[in-house]
Design a protein around this nucleic acid. Structure first.
Length: 926
RNA sequence: GCCGCGGUGGCGGAAUUGGCAGACGCGCAGGACUUAAAAUCCUGUGGCCGUUAGGCUGUGCGGGUUCGACUCCCGCCCGCGGCACCA
């Protein structure tokens, strides 16, 4: 049969084969699995949005599809499932607008997704499809909640939460971006509410440590590390001057967390967060009004105001004092909103000389500044014209001198590196010998990177240790006509160094000092070593309808009217189904609250019932709870006795390859790891990381280089592309665009190029012959097989496709292609372009299906050439190439070169030296 | 500010991890086929000089190591992503 241009109907035969694949069920997950040959290849399951599949989905899904198909051909048993992360706000918001039930819109969207995915020829096992919104799924989401509750990892507390006034719901910290709701960009405010939390903080250390054992992108691991935010330090107790807790005889104290216990001698005041519970107890009568006013104001501030944009530090004095445990010094206690209640102990010891924030605060309010760490070496910059005589020689007495630049007006600029013990002498010397106020700028300055609280200017040294000093300095500088923007603002010295003004710590160097002071604090029982984390417990309550209900019942009979007992729904009563009789309008409370049916319940413990006596929790769970365990469900999706059987989990987990967008760096990936660890501790599984190997797909940008967006009208819809060029083109083009992880712009012209390539493949069929391949051809296909295998395994599909193109270009120029070579080529291209290869396989009488064939072998011996072309360089410049026998030695190659006329002109004399790298290069130095 | 990633032709991107920079594709230019267009095929294509042979130069910038650097080291510049008053 002669394939011609006109016969190339990729869209048509794609449909034909898709139908046949489905009918024959060739992508069903195998039942008998050899544990050593299992492969779990997972995509991040999509939220079934009404817009349908995006080209970004196609990229990730194609990559895992190729991988799965390849592994199947390598005779691995592959689990490659898909499902729907179906709960969530968009469907509910749509319901609020239109009154259409979220389940209806969601199921419809799922149908669209299924059709789209099928039209791409992705090899999912549809028998394992799951949806988080279906009761047989969320039954187990609720089961997980109960498991966490049983293990003491789910708890309820009143807490200030992030409240989005527009979505009328609580947000997790992770969902607040720059103080705004990640979904609607509305500014988030603080609100006290009764909320359910998962105690992920219990797992902070393990979540951090276990990152070392998984193969994930470094950036993603780093993202998680930052999010967990572990810092080593100490807790130090400062007793409160003349104060006792009212309910005991114990002396009152404040605990602070610090990462710099070595600077404790420089602690000149304490700062508590405005909402710190001690504040009201210690504030003196005189200061109460100001303190309360400040607390009120702080409470009103949004997260946005309180953080980044609010640079100016504010605070008020409480009237109370604390005692610094290392020197007995009486220091004031302030409150300020630059201290967060949610981190550390909600209180700090302020060391203004060595913390930028404390320094700004201290300068503003005139608080004491004591330097306790000096840099081992300070840098001073002195200008030549500011001194008389040999400046370099004079300065050399005080430290290492280096010329950093020369200026025709000012002369040389010297940098003096002075050790801390000589710094005082240098300053004295400069004070005494500087030319003062001379017209041409007898000025000099010191930019002492270390002790920058000193500003040295025109022969005067300003020790900016107090607010007044700074003002004095500015005043003086201004009077000399220096523009305001030239002023050096004092910088706290935050680096390591040598302790000064620190009694028994003096002359010790920083990392060591920390150990010593911590030991001292522990001995005196006024402090201890401690790590602090940025990670906070995971708030999972949502005042929303379209989510899994929290399986909790409140009973006033088991508890009391004031404090109803929390009664978990017994497992046998799961799932707690979403009620139908609801109104979707957001009120700030869950719509479930207004469902009569839903609320009517009998206490499973005491059997009490009745309105206001027994009722259900009406909040639903954050959708991230649904997606924190779905990968387990895929191993056993129909099980109604367990979330998944031990056997199924043992067979398939952990996931061998997980591909998805980088936007889930912290949320989903961290929560899934947390759930996995909880399951391990509860004895359900025996591993503690769910995803062994993770890769991200990059963003696909529009043709104009911008993000695809309805607003710009530059969105590429995969459906349109499939209709125009066929699924194989779309798949292969997306793989050919560039490395999977990179962001890259779409190019319709580039897509056409891939289409042309596939057409060439199609036409190659005419040239198939029974002739046996010769040695060169045999080598070529062996190399291609080896390259393709490796390329798929490293997910560098783009270079594999480039090799395919080279191969096809080669045979397009030949008269014929041997059948045995052609067959193997079709086999290795099958994972990339499943439809066209199936069609061509069929045309040469191959057994159905090509996708069930074995991956062709390659002989490692065959991929090494025996004739090799190497570069010939003279004096480092490549002047040509020479074909040699593989493994030839230097002498042989050199002889050959001397016999070739084209190199003769370069050989002007005996070589001084010859550099020879076997089978690579020969470089002759003349 | 801190952390992470990156910077190679007109464009997307290759480069066996220190050994012929620019594979493959797009675009562009010239040519073939055609009444014409599309499709297809052939040739060329980093820059500069040269009619050719060839020469010089070239991987963000400045240094260094090396026979040899896109690749390793030091110092910068720019872009992207994340975190951000975290003590």
């Amino acid at each position: 049969m002669a394939n011609r241009d006109d016969d190339f109907q990729p869209v048509e035969f794609a449909k034909k084969w898709q139908k046949k694949w489905e009918k024959e069920g060739i992508y069903k997950t195998p039942i008998k699995v050899d544990p050593k040959k299992k492969f779990y290849c997972l995509d991040m399951f999509p939220y079934p949005s009404g817009v349908g599949l995006h080209v970004g989905h196609v990229e990730g899904y194609t990559a895992t599809d190729i991988y799965s198909r390849y592994m199947r051909m390598r005779r691995f048993q592959v689990l490659h499932p898909i499902g729907w992360d179906a709960f969530g706000l968009p469907a509910e918001n749509y319901a609020i607008k239109t009154g259409i039930h979220p389940r209806e819109t969601t199921e419809k969207a799922i149908q669209t997704f299924i059709e789209q995915i099928k039209s791409l020829g992705l090899s999912y096992d549809w028998g394992r499809e799951i949806g988080t919104h279906r009761p047989d799924y969320y039954k187990w989401t609720q089961w997980f909640f109960l498991l966490l509750y049983k293990k003491g990892l789910a708890y309820k507390k009143t807490a200030p939460v992030n409240w989005c006034p527009s979505c009328q719901t609580v947000l997790a910290n992770e969902q607040v971006i720059d103080g705004k709701c990640e979904r609607c960009d509305t500014e988030v405010s603080q609100k006290d509410m009764d909320q359910w939390f998962f105690k992920i903080t219990d797992y902070a250390d393990r979540l951090l440590k276990d990152l070392d054992k998984i193969d994930w992108p470094e950036s993603t691991k780093e993202g998680q590390r930052n999010w967990i935010g572990r810092s080593e330090g100490a807790i130090i107790k400062f007793s409160i001057f003349n104060f006792q807790f009212s309910n005991s005889n114990e002396e009152g104290y404040v605990e602070v967390f610090t990462t710099r216990p070595d600077t404790v001698f420089g602690a000149t005041y304490l700062v508590l967060a405005p909402e710190h519970p001690l504040v009201n107890k210690i504030t003196t009568e005189k200061h109460k009004p100001a303190v309360e006013k400040y607390q009120q104001a702080a409470k009103k501030k949004t997260a946005l105001q309180r953080s980044a944009l609010e640079k100016d530090k504010t605070g008020v004095f409480t009237g109370a004092y604390a005692i610094n445990p290392v020197n007995g010094k009486k220091i004031p206690i302030w409150i300020a909103d630059y201290v967060m209640m949610t981190y550390g102990t909600g209180a700090i010891m302020a060391v203004p000389a060595h913390d930028q924030r404390d320094l700004e605060f201290a300068l503003k309010y005139g608080l004491e500044i004591i330097e306790v760490v000096a840099p081992k070496v300070a840098k001073y910059i002195v200008i030549e014209k500011s001194l008389e005589g040999n400046v370099e020689r004079m300065l050399a007495k005080y430290g290492q001198v280096r010329i950093i630049k020369e200026d025709k007006d000012w002369g040389k600029f010297f940098e003096v590196n002075v050790t801390y013990d000589k710094e005082g002498a240098l300053i004295e010397f400069l004070k005494a010998n500087l030319l003062k106020d001379s017209e041409d700028g007898g000025a000099w300055y010191a930019d002492s990177v270390g002790t920058t609280n000193k500003v040295v200017f025109r022969g005067k040294v300003f020790n900016v240790l107090h607010k007044q000093d700074l003002e004095d300095f500015k005043e003086y500088a201004r009077s000399t006509g220096v523009p305001e923007d030239q002023f050096v603002e004092p910088q706290a010295y935050v680096e390591d160094g040598v302790n000064i003004n620190s009694d028994f710590l003096n002359r010790m160097e920083t990392p060591k000092t920390k150990e010593i002071i911590i030991q001292w604090l522990e001995d005196k029982k006024v402090g201890k070593k401690q790590a602090a984390y940025k990670l906070r417990d995971w708030l999972i309550s949502r005042q929303r309808y379209w989510g899994a209900p929290i399986p909790i019942i409140y009973c006033t009979k088991c508890g009391s009217e004031d404090k109803p007992a929390i009664v978990p729904v017994p497992e046998k009563d799961l799932p707690v189904k979403l009620p139908e009789d609801v109104d979707f309008k957001p009120t700030g409370e869950s719509p479930l609250k207004y469902s009569k049916k839903f609320h009517k319940v009998t206490c499973p413990v005491c059997g009490a019932r009745g309105e206001g006596v027994v009722w259900r929790e009406s909040d639903t769970m954050d959708t991230f709870v649904d997606s924190s365990w779905y990968f387990f469900r895929f191993t056993d999706p129909k099980n109604d006795k367990e979330f998944a059987s031990k056997q199924a989990i043992k067979t398939w987990m952990p996931v061998d390859l997980y591909v998805g967008g980088a936007e889930h760096t912290v949320l989903h990936l961290l929560y899934s790891r947390f759930f996995t660890k909880v399951l391990k501790d509860a004895g359900y599984i025996d591993f503690d990381e769910p995803f062994m190997k993770l890769r991200h797909q990059g963003l696909i940008l529009a043709e104009d280089g911008r993000k695809m967006s309805k607003r710009w009208g530059n969105v590429i819809n995969p459906d349109d592309e499939i209709k125009k060029f066929g699924a194989d083109t779309v798949r292969m083009y997306e793989m050919f665009m560039g490395p999977l992880k990179d962001a890259k712009p779409w190019s319709t012209a580039g897509e056409r190029g891939v289409y042309r390539f596939l057409k060439k493949v199609w036409l190659l069929h005419q040239k198939v012959t029974d002739r046996k391949p010769d040695q060169t051809e045999e080598r070529m296909i062996h190399k291609l097989i080896a390259y393709t295998s490796k390329g798929i395994e490293t997910l560098s599909m783009n270079t594999v496709i480039a090799r395919f193109m080279e191969f096809v270009n080669h045979y397009s120029k030949e008269k014929e292609i041997p059948l045995s070579v052609w067959k193997r080529f079709l086999l290795i291209m099958a994972p990339f372009a499943p439809h066209i290869t199936e069609e061509l396989w069929n045309q040469i009488g191959g057994k159905f299906s090509i996708h069930q064939q074995k991956w062709p072998d390659h002989d490692p011996k065959m991929i090494k050439d025996d004739q090799i072309e190497i570069a010939v360089a003279f004096n480092d410049k490549t002047r040509g190439t020479i074909t040699i026998e593989a493994g030839s030695d230097q002498e042989t190659v050199w002889q050959m070169i001397q016999h070739q006329a084209k190199f003769a002109k370069y050989i002007t004399s005996q070589p001084k030296k010859i550099i020879f790298v076997k089978d690579r290069i020969i470089n002759i130095l003349i």
